[in-house]
Design a protein around this nucleic acid. Sequence first.
DNA 1: GGTGCGATTGCA
DNA 2: GCAATCGCACCA
Length: 187
Amino acid sequence: MAVLSLAFYRRPTLEVARDLLGRTLCRRLPEGEVRRGKIVEVEAYDGPEDRASHAHRGRTPRNTPMFAAGGIAYVYQIYGVHFCFNVVTGDDDYPAAVLVRATEAPVDGASAAGPGKLCHAFDIDRSLDGCGLRGRKLWLEEGTVVPDRRARRTPRIGVHYAGAWAAKRFRFLIRDHPEVSGPRRLR
DNA sequence: GGTGCGATTGCA
DNA sequence: GCAATCGCACCA
């Protein structure tokens, strides 16, 4: 199965987010085991104006990967407990990324429905922050394109503070998929 | 150097 | 409904 090209990521963030549905997230563990899971839910964080984005207050040590050209990972820790995995998108100096919120389980019994659970299931932590998405540890494969009638858009989760940006439908998921996290039907 | 809080989760 | 748990952004 073909690995997604850098050109795939270096497009407008909402396009990339939509196109990530159905793709396969792949992770090789240090001991060699490869875990794979079909992406079923993502959220776009697009540009410096997006009040829900980490990049809204400009470049900081944490969010620097978001400013790079598309095709690398942005991994951060939240609540001191969980990690969240993002795919950096767009051109150099334009801060944008897509949070991967859920995949089908990469390992039997290990749910990857929810950004924290996903990172746990794939053994993703901050050591992968800034890591290329065409490398030995981490890559995405073509998978199966999801047709429009199977895709759905809703507002993003947990960004109530973001004013008008909270209402934008930047979350994409596969309709009726059992492994999506949180509400499925908002608008 | 001090303070407040979050792109979450699991348990009461 | 809320605690866990800490990196980081922000202010001084």
